[in-house]
């Protein structure tokens, strides 16, 4: 049965009103979803992680890292860190600094309650622990696409756009240093790009400590731009670059540097010191080591 003109106009206006009403409702909801998490939430999450930290490190002695043994390794640069366990008091400022520098996302409450965070630096045995950038990395060996690879200057790099999310690397890391993006952090309002230099990661890719690759890249690019084309036998050594965690530590317990550069603070401060690494990683040529005990 057809409807007459009046009814038609009535239904049209009803539809228009409904559209306006519900259309209006959509906008505030979208704005809510797009709200960026506050800095306080990031700080609180780090505090929660610190309170829940239960794992310990089983450390064994390792020799001082030297040049990488992969083909094409640089003879000048091998970046790494040394963490002084005696100076560290477990304050967790390094974790917060890393999270803000690298735009590490928050996790939903259920995961946080179970102690599953996305933090690249974990507190284990009251020492900050992160990917040690093994010279002979088990994760890189099994990545099917080559997203996990090694740079000639010693970083175990993670290329997010090449990651297909098979999680084989995560399964193969003996100390579970890698984190998987189970959630679309941006959509859930759990991510915030504090640092524009570092991209936000998509759902479904692995991430881990990058030894602040972006800082090293920027420094290297600046160095190479300033060179004159013909001159300068000088090579880039990454001097003056500090990772976010090393910068943030109030006790200077984290020392970043170049294992192959005698002028690097890393080499100077680890000279004649005994270096340690977790037992599971000791044979894998770690670039990040621990120090303890007075000289």
């Amino acid at each position: 049965m057809g409807m007459d003109r009046r009814e038609f106009i009535k239904s049209c206006s009803l539809v228009a009103v409904m559209g306006l009403l519900f259309g209006c409702r959509k906008i505030p909801l979208e704005e809510l979803a797009g709200d960026l998490p506050s800095l306080k939430r990031f700080e609180d999450e780090v505090k929660l992680a610190l309170s829940q930290a239960k794992k310990t490190l089983d450390l064994v002695k390792v020799p001082t890292p030297g040049a990488l043994k992969i083909p094409g390794a640089s003879a000048l640069n091998r970046f790494g860190m040394a963490i002084d366990l005696d100076a560290c008091d477990g304050c967790g400022k390094c974790i917060l600094a890393c999270n803000l520098e690298n735009n590490v996302p928050l996790v939903p409450d259920e995961d946080a309650a179970r102690g599953r965070f996305m933090h690249w630096v974990d507190m284990r045995g009251s020492a900050p622990f992160m990917c040690v950038h093994c010279g002979n990395a088990p994760c890189e060996r099994v990545c099917p696409t080559g997203a996990a690879n090694h740079t000639p200057d010693g970083l175990s790099a993670m290329m997010y756009k090449r990651c297909t999310g098979s999680r084989f690397c995560g399964a193969n890391c003996p100390v579970q240093a890698r984190k998987f993006n189970f959630n679309d952090a941006q959509k859930l309002g759990l991510a915030r790009q504090f640092n524009r230099e570092v991209p936000l990661r998509d759902k479904g890719v692995m991430e881990k400590c990058s030894l602040c690759l972006h800082r090293l890249q920027n420094d290297r690019l600046k160095f190479k731009t300033s060179l004159t084309v013909d001159a300068s036998a000088e090579e880039w050594r990454g001097r003056g670059v500090k990772t976010a965690c090393a910068e943030a530590c109030p006790k200077n317990a984290i020392i970043f540097g170049n294992w192959l550069d005698e002028k690097s603070p890393l080499v100077k401060l680890t000279k004649n010191r005994e270096l340690y690494a977790p037992r599971e990683l000791a044979d894998l040529d770690p670039s990040v080591v621990f120090m303890r005990g007075r000289r």
Binding site: K161, L221, K224, T228
Partner: peptide, 16 residues
């Protein structure tokens, strides 16, 4: 260029 690409004009110019 996509965001994950780091391209530095200066480095290339300096290289000739």
């Amino acid at each position: 260029l996509p965001d994950h690409v780091v391209f530095h004009h200066g480095v290339h110019a300096a290289a000739g």
